[in-house]
């Protein structure tokens, strides 16, 4: 059986745990849960990984969830941090403060020089390219702006530069708990490198499907945060963890 690593997501909007629906900031749902309680919940369930996104940072261009990042690292979570990393200095700070990897989207897409600097200074292991896809195209700046690119050719170019990990988000499904689109992920599974999937994942069956397609990682948002959580973290098998 093929396995998939689950990365539960905590998205922060002005420091509060929140989820967007299809990337729309206007309809953000804010949770009462404090970030630290969310982190502890992951540890309680034996899932020592966290996909931490600063939604405010993604929009403004400056990651600002430093205290949440430090808290998560102190608790012992492996953290990938994203949202607003547009300078090498910000990436360096996140890695220095204990993030395992930094997720970079807009910056990579808008500046090849920035992309090369990140590879040269931090190596391909420390950086995850975020490719957020709507209607086959990559979106940037917290999904508020269209990129110029067909998403596949964008990733192929980043791969050719030296990137090896990509996190793809299916915006159409994201925050919807609508389940995954298998054809979408089948196409991504044929791309080079190690692909992580996000957007609409709602059930263990979705995870199994993704694993069978050869997707390496799954970013799960609403499905673990909601009270009536569709994906019960405790129920995930060892292989998925």
């Amino acid at each position: 059986m093929r396995t998939i690593e689950v990365w539960p997501a905590v998205d922060l909007l002005d420091g509060q745990v929140a989820r967007l629906h299809q990337g729309d900031y206007a309809t953000a749902h804010r949770y009462r849960l404090q970030p630290i309680d969310a982190f502890n919940r992951l540890l309680d369930h034996g899932v020592p990984r966290l996909h931490l996104v600063d939604l405010s940072g993604a929009e403004s261009g400056t990651f600002d969830a430093w205290s949440a990042l430090a808290q998560a690292v102190r608790l012992g979570l492996r953290v990938e941090a994203g949202g607003g990393f547009r300078t090498p200095e910000a990436v360096a700070r996140a890695l220095a403060e204990g993030a395992q990897r930094v997720v970079v989207g807009t910056g990579l897409i808008e500046s090849p020089a920035f992309a090369d600097t990140l590879l040269e200074r931090f190596g391909a292991d420390a950086i995850v390219a975020a490719v957020d896809v709507q209607d086959g195209r990559a979106k940037v700046r917290g999904w508020t702006t269209d990129g110029e690119d067909d998403a596949f050719s964008l990733w192929e170019r980043l791969y050719a530069r030296g990137f090896r990990r990509v996190n793809v988000t299916d915006i159409q499904q994201d925050g919807s708990l609508a389940g995954i689109r298998e054809a979408f992920w089948r196409a991504w599974s044929r791309q080079p490198g190690e692909c992580g999937a996000g957007g609409g994942i709602r059930s263990p069956a979705d995870l199994t499907t993704l694993a069978e397609l050869g997707i390496a990682r799954a970013v799960v948002g609403k499905a673990w945060l909601e009270e009536e959580g569709w994906i019960d973290l405790a129920s995930l098998s060892e292989e998925e963890l």
Partner: peptide
């Protein structure tokens, strides 16, 4: 903290 950058 993170060891990935050191490993790399």
């Amino acid at each position: 903290g993170n060891l990935g950058s050191l490993q790399a």
